[in-house]
Amino acid sequence: MGMPNRKYADGEVVMGRWPGSVLYYEVQVTSYDDASHLYTVKYKDGTELALKESDIRLQS
């Protein structure tokens, strides 16, 4: 078993793309699913969504 190939840690605050949009919002990573390679993130309004790594970026 190798290390999970994840870029962002639980609790890390990053920018997540809103689905169907080009806009990124501040989100907190809450979990990562090794099987689906999706991150569960929480937006400031409390919305929780699963995002692909390509829809997440570090805060500038």
Results as ranks from 00 to 15, higher is better:
His37Phe: 11
Asn5Phe: 10
Arg6Glu: 02
Gly46Arg: 04
Glu48Tyr: 14
Asp33Ser: 08
Pro19Asn: 05
Thr47Cys: 08
Ser21Met: 06
Ala35Asp: 12
Lys44Val: 09
Glu53Ser: 04
Tyr8Phe: 11
Ser60Ala: 12
Thr40Ser: 08
Arg57Met: 15
Glu12Phe: 04
Val41Arg: 00
Thr30Ala: 09
Tyr8Cys: 02
Tyr25Gln: 10
Asp45Cys: 07
Thr47Tyr: 07
Tyr43Phe: 13
Asn5Thr: 13
Ser54Thr: 12
Met3Tyr: 13
Gly2Phe: 06
Ser31Tyr: 08
Lys42Gln: 10
Lys44Trp: 13
Ile56Thr: 01
Val14Ala: 05
Trp18Cys: 09
Asp34Tyr: 14
Gln28Val: 15
Gly16Phe: 07
Glu12Thr: 10
Met3Gln: 15
Ser60Gln: 12
Tyr32Thr: 00
Met1Asn: 15
Tyr32Met: 02
Asp45Lys: 02
Tyr43His: 10
Val13Asn: 08
Gly20Asp: 08
Arg6Asp: 02
Arg57Cys: 11
Ser21His: 07
Val14Thr: 02
Met1Glu: 14
Val41Gln: 01
Pro19Thr: 03
Tyr32Leu: 01
Pro4Val: 10
Leu49Cys: 08
Thr30Ser: 09
Leu58Trp: 08
Asp45Asn: 09
Asp55Trp: 04
Gln28Tyr: 09
Leu49Ala: 10
Asp10Thr: 08
Leu58Phe: 09
Lys52Gln: 11
Leu58Thr: 14
Pro19Trp: 05
Trp18Thr: 06
Arg6Lys: 05
Leu49Arg: 09
Val13Gln: 08
Glu48Phe: 13
Gly20Phe: 07
Asp45Ile: 02
Tyr25Met: 10
His37Val: 03
Leu58Gly: 14
Gly11Gln: 04
Lys52Asn: 10
Val13Ser: 07
Ser36Gly: 06
Glu48Asp: 06
Leu38Ile: 11
Thr47Phe: 08
Val13Thr: 11
Gly46Pro: 01
Leu58Ser: 15
Glu12Pro: 00
Asp34Asn: 11
Tyr8Ser: 00
Lys42Asn: 05
Leu58Tyr: 13
Lys44Glu: 09
Gln28Lys: 12
Lys44Cys: 11
Lys7Arg: 07
Thr30Pro: 00
Asp34Met: 09
Ser31Glu: 06
Gly20Tyr: 07
Asp10Val: 11
Ser54Gln: 11
Glu53Arg: 02
Val14Pro: 01
Gly46Asp: 05
Met3Asp: 13
Val22Trp: 13
Val41Met: 02
Gln59Arg: 13
Val29Trp: 01
Tyr24Leu: 04
Val13Pro: 03
Glu12Asp: 12
Ser60Arg: 03
Lys42Gly: 03
Met3Ser: 15
Ser21Phe: 03
Ser54Ala: 11
Ser36Tyr: 08
Ser31Asp: 09
Ala50Pro: 09
Glu48Thr: 14
Ser60Pro: 13
Tyr39Gly: 00
Met1Asp: 15
Glu48Pro: 05
Ala9Tyr: 10
Met3Cys: 13
Leu38Asp: 04
Met1Gly: 14
Glu53Leu: 04
Glu26Phe: 07
Gln28Cys: 09
Glu26Ala: 08
Thr40Leu: 12
Met1Pro: 14
Leu49Lys: 08
His37Ser: 12
Leu49Asp: 03
Met15Gly: 03
Met1Ser: 15
Arg17Ser: 03
Gln28Met: 15
Lys42Trp: 06
Gly11Tyr: 05
Glu53Tyr: 04
Asn5Ser: 11
Asp55Leu: 03
Pro4Asn: 11
Ser31Pro: 00
Ala35Cys: 09
Met15His: 08
Arg6Gly: 03
Glu12Val: 07
Pro4Cys: 09
Arg6Leu: 03
Asp10Tyr: 05
Arg6Ser: 03
Gly16Glu: 01
Thr40Gln: 08
Glu26Arg: 07
Ala50Arg: 15
Tyr32Val: 01
Asp45Glu: 04
Ser36Ile: 06
Gly20Asn: 10
Asp45Arg: 02
Leu51Arg: 01
Gly16Met: 09
Arg17Lys: 11
Pro4Leu: 08
Met1Gln: 14
Val14Gly: 02
Leu58His: 15
Glu12Arg: 04
Thr47Gln: 10
Arg57Ser: 09
Glu12Ser: 09
His37Gln: 15
Arg17Glu: 01
Tyr39Val: 02
Lys7Phe: 04
His37Pro: 01
Gly20Glu: 06
Met3Ala: 14
Pro19Ile: 02
Ala35Gly: 09
Tyr8Pro: 03
Asp45His: 04
Ala9Pro: 07
Gln59Cys: 13
Val13His: 10
Lys52Phe: 12
Gln28Ala: 07
Lys52Asp: 10
Leu49Gly: 08
Tyr25Asn: 05
Asp45Gln: 03
Ser31Trp: 07
Lys44Thr: 08
Pro19Gly: 05
Lys44His: 12
Lys42Pro: 00
Ile56Cys: 02
Asp10Gln: 06
Tyr8Gln: 01
Leu49Ile: 13
Asp55His: 07
Lys44Leu: 10
Leu38Glu: 09
Ile56Val: 04
Thr30Phe: 08
Pro19Tyr: 04
Gly20Trp: 05
Met3Pro: 14
Thr30Glu: 10
Ala50Ile: 15
Gln28Phe: 08
Ser54Arg: 08
Thr47Arg: 09
Val14Ile: 04
Asp10Asn: 10
Lys52Gly: 10
Gly20Met: 07
Pro4Phe: 08
Ser36Trp: 06
Lys44Gly: 09
Trp18Lys: 11
Val14Asn: 01
Ser60Glu: 13
Lys7Asp: 03
Leu51Ala: 02
Tyr43Gln: 07
Thr47Glu: 05
His37Leu: 12
Asp33His: 05
Tyr8Asp: 01
Val27Gln: 00
Val14Leu: 06
Val14Tyr: 03
Tyr39Leu: 01
Val29Phe: 00
Lys52His: 12
Lys7Gly: 04
Gly11Val: 01
Asp34Trp: 12
Gly16His: 03
Met1His: 14
Lys44Ala: 11
Arg6Ile: 04
Ser31Arg: 09
Asp10Pro: 07
Asn5Leu: 13
Asp55Met: 06
Ala35Ser: 11
Glu53Trp: 04
Leu51Ser: 01
Ser31Gly: 15
Pro19Lys: 06
Val41Ser: 01
Val27Ala: 13
Ser36Gln: 10
Ala9Glu: 10
Met3Ile: 13
Glu53Gly: 05
Ile56Asp: 01
Asn5Lys: 08
Met1Tyr: 03
Ser60Asn: 12
Pro4Lys: 06
Tyr43Asp: 08
Lys52Ser: 12
Ser31Lys: 09
Leu49Glu: 04
Leu58Gln: 14
Leu23Asp: 12
Arg17Thr: 04
Leu23Ala: 10
Arg57His: 10
Arg57Ile: 11
Lys44Met: 12
Met15Ile: 06
Gln59Leu: 15
